[in-house]
Amino acid sequence: MEDLPGEVDLDAALVVERLREIVNSAPVEYPRNWVPQGTFDELLVRTEREAIHFHPSIHHLHHRWDMGPARRNSGSGKGPKALFLRIVARLMNSAFDRYFTEEQEFRAALAQSIDALAYRIDEVAGNDEREILDLVRTDLLSLSRYVDGRIDTSGTPSERS
């Protein structure tokens, strides 16, 4: 929002133009569509267990689930083969529009479901790590208490002698 002209009288057209400029001038690909949830659990990052969100296939899914750009891009060639393919692509798109729309919804739902599962798995994994750490910490504390107790009960070497 800090990039938007906000202090002066708000102009919707300027806001839309500014948003488009930001998108066009972005040095990296702008998140154009749905963005997966991030776990960003520092604990998971520091462990050897890889967060499921960083799995390459999930990364691939999040970048490829949207069929919209592929359907809209029918090529820019001018040769006879390009023209023929463009006609076929248009016809296929219009003939299977209903199917493609359903497919798109299905893919979106699938991507979101997998994202939710991945998030949940990372959450469970994070909790798991925490529990293990708690157990280890408890064990260490018990051990230290035991050692401390043994030292207390057995006394120093000079006392024992």
Binding site: A12, V16, L19, Y30, G68
Partner: peptide, 12 residues
């Protein structure tokens, strides 16, 4: 606001 595609819609 108005949008040309889903990305612009989400920006809006």
């Amino acid at each position: 606001l108005w949008y040309r595609n889903n990305g612009e819609l989400l920006d809006a």
